[in-house]
Computed example of a mutant assay.
Amino acid sequence: MVVLANTPTEQISIIKPQKAHVHFSNIPIIDLSKPGCEIAIVKALEDFGFFKVTNHGVSKEIMSKLEAEAVKFFSLSQVEKDKAGYPNPCGYGNKRIGGNGDFGWVEYLLFEINSKPISSTSLGFLREHCASLFCSALNEYISSVRKLSSNVLELMAQGLGIKQRDIFSKLVTSQESDSMFRLNHYPACPLLKELNCNLTGFGEHTDPQLISILRSNNTNGFQIALKDGGWLSVPPDEGSFFINAGDILQVLTNGRLRSVKHRVLTNGSKARVSMIFFGGPPLNQMITPLPQLLKGEEKKYIDFTWADYKKAAFKSRLADNRLALFEREMTH
Rank of each mutant, 00 (worst) to 15 (best):
F314Y: 12
L191W: 08
E154I: 00
S259G: 08
F168V: 00
E329P: 05
S144I: 02
F314R: 13
G91H: 08
G159H: 05
R146W: 04
K311F: 11
C197G: 11
T253A: 01
D303K: 14
E238F: 06
L153V: 00
G124K: 11
Y92V: 10
D303L: 02
K315D: 13
I30Y: 05
S120Q: 13
S169W: 01
V152K: 04
R322G: 03
H332Q: 05
V234N: 07
Q209Y: 15
P87F: 15
K311P: 10
I118H: 15
G85Y: 15
S120V: 12
V264C: 00
P236K: 09
I97R: 11
K72I: 07
E107V: 03
L76C: 05
E38P: 10
I113W: 14
I287K: 08
A20P: 07
H129Q: 13
P236R: 13
S115K: 15
S174L: 06
S64M: 09
L265Q: 12
H205E: 04
F242C: 14
K72T: 07
M63R: 15
P89H: 08
G255Q: 04
F48I: 03
P17S: 01
K163P: 03
S216Q: 09
L195F: 10
L45G: 01
A313E: 11
Q285F: 05
P8M: 08
K147P: 07
A40W: 02
L257Y: 12
V2I: 14
V79D: 11
L171Q: 13
G93L: 11
H332T: 05
M156A: 07
G49M: 02
